[in-house]
Design a protein around this nucleic acid. Structure first.
Lengths: 346, 346
DNA sequence: TTGTAAGCGTTATCAC
DNA sequence: GTGATAACGCTTACAA
């Protein structure tokens, strides 16, 4: 049934030590011996037992990826990239979802770390990074910026710059009545706060008054939240000719409401989001967005984690991933079609 | 550093056996002893070592989910549900992506099974189920129908019925020039074949001639494939007033092309997909679709796997999950807005 | 009810 | 270059 080193050793007429050496590709094995052992391994279909190996080595070669939800496009795309990058390192990936619930974020960071997994990559929503830092018992890398001193590594894009880029883009189109959707004052998560900060600073620099009634808060970042927020804006007293949504999902929801109300995008209202999710490239109109380099985020997170697994005492780092503005139809209109780099089958 | 049963036992003044009993919630422990041990566990922050436990028990309480890609909405949503359902069972989930490549499908099914994971849920594209059945070394459940005798469990919706439902719906709208996008004759995957079969049978039953030049094959199931396929249809000789796309992603791509060509949906061309991905609810127009019960698929897959882990010799089963037609704007037009169950924030 | 001790399959430390 | 053998941390007969 269970074929282990012992069976292979017996078959090949060597000791378990030698079989282990061959299985692990050790250098100092006589060619003839190696051949014989490899033969026995193949014939018996030997596969090393991961549990035993982990127990002995103290390493599982497995990391855990903790995201709020796997079914939202941004995290799905990110998870896909993390799994791919991890595979290149020979690491397996465990995936957990927190639903943005504080208790689950705490448990996933404090629980498994350093035990069944070698490290954790976590994208927190509800719990402040510094609290997670205090809880963590093993290597942890957080996705999102540092809000206060803590001893964990952080990876994020420059969210203030992202907010500025989106807002500058809308202003450059001649829009002057800008709204923002996606503030999350109730969360211990600085992403929304920083994007809003960049938005406000840019408006101010352009000599436009900050219109607080045109900043809409949302409880979560899904399409329905964006749709509802847009409805509130349209029903409100202020004129709106452009909307900066803090995520693409919010933007898609907002565009849905605009379509239902008969407002043309971008003619009546221009829309720009953040995340560059795949849906944004193919919806009608295609969605202008601030695109974080998700592959880079995944790679940096794994680099950081690898470094920290190797040296738990390494000084903590804040790494900044790139982003760039993708101008598409939801701000440029049909003109975007000609400028766009990835036109669908036409 | 590493706090194990021994340290806890010493601290509580009992044997490791007793600590193990407490940690595992065994019944026969004196209340006073239990209290003292629990205290020591908490104080020392003891966490059982998963590797050692797995080695001893021969169970990892971990399964592996193997999908072609995690960043396509259908698999992202399914993975999310599988992770949730697995968590209820106390199982962790390992996620792997095959990119639909045959070698990876083979490796993921034959490799890890029964070793580092207790079982595998796999959604194959390139490799025929019966070949995977021959390769598998442990409990494996396949997503998709059985194509030939094999000893694995299968979970799928009734794809012939799905094809019929979509096609009947288009016919019921008075459309007579139906096209189909999504045939995959090059793959060892019967899903597309069965949906096409249902489509053809329904056309035939309605007295319409099968128009083979209006069935478009695609190499993959992404939006660009749908967009390109739609362009081919529009450039072709046959009139088309309705399209059945075998996945929602293909449908979204097709709708993109229709918009670019100035064709109105559904007025000029009605579109229906399969999968009920979230994007389809909020795009404009919202996408009519055949919705598989993904939560049920996830649950059935885990039930099957649990049963097979418990009894590897259990007879293999083919389970059929539910589906239902979601009629939205891409076929009904604005009328759908009033009939629809989930209107965005309005 | 609790203690003692034998493995689970590997890797790593000694020898030879 | 290879062979014994002792851990790794846990669960579980078997005793007490």
């Amino acid at each position: 049934m269970a074929v282990g080193l012992r069976e292979v050793a017996a078959r090949a007429g060597v000791s378990v030590r030698t079989v282990s050496n061959v299985a692990n590709g050790f250098a100092h094995v006589a060619p003839e011996t190696r051949r014989r052992v490899q033969e026995a391994i193949d014939e018996l279909g030997y596969r090393p037992n991961t549990a035993a190996r982990s127990l002995r080595r103290g390493r599982t070669e497995t990391i855990s990826l903790v995201v709020p939800e796997l079914d939202s496009p941004y995290f799905a795309e990110l998870a896909s990239l993390v799994v791919r990058a991890a595979e290149e390192r020979g690491w397996a990936v465990h995936i957990d979802q927190t639903d943005g619930r504080a208790d689950r974020e705490r448990r996933m960071v404090s629980g498994p770390a350093g035990r069944s997994v070698d490290g954790v990559i976590c994208s927190p929503w509800a719990v402040a990074p510094e609290e997670l830092a205090a809880l963590s018992a093993g290597p942890v890398v957080l996705l999102g910026e540092r809000t206060a001193p803590g001893r964990l590594d952080h990876i994020a894009i420059d969210n203030v710059a992202a907010g500025e880029a989106a807002t500058r883009h809308l202003l450059s189109l001649g829009r002057r009545h800008l709204a923002a959707i996606g503030a999350q004052p109730h969360l211990h998560n600085d992403t929304a706060r920083l994007r809003l900060q960049g938005h406000r600073a840019t408006l101010l620099a352009a000599g436009l008054p900050p219109a607080e009634d045109r900043v809409v808060a949302v409880s979560t970042l899904h399409r329905p939240d964006g749709a509802a927020a847009m409805a509130r804006l349209l029903d409100g007293p202020s004129r709106v000719d452009a909307v900066f949504c803090f995520t693409d999902e919010l933007a898609l929801g907002a565009m849905r409401t605009l379509a239902e109300r008969g407002r043309r995008v971008p003619d009546d209202v221009a829309v720009v989001g953040v995340d560059d999710i795949l849906d944004g490239r193919y919806c009608v109109p295609s969605l202008s967005t601030v695109a974080p380099d998700k592959a880079q985020i995944a790679r940096l997170a794994l680099d950081c984690l690898a470094r920290r697994i190797q040296d738990p005492q390494a000084p903590d780092r804040d790494l900044v991933a790139d982003h760039r503005l993708e101008e598409r139809e939801s701000t440029l209109g049909a003109a975007a079609r000609r400028r766009q780099s990835s036109p669908p089958g036409s």
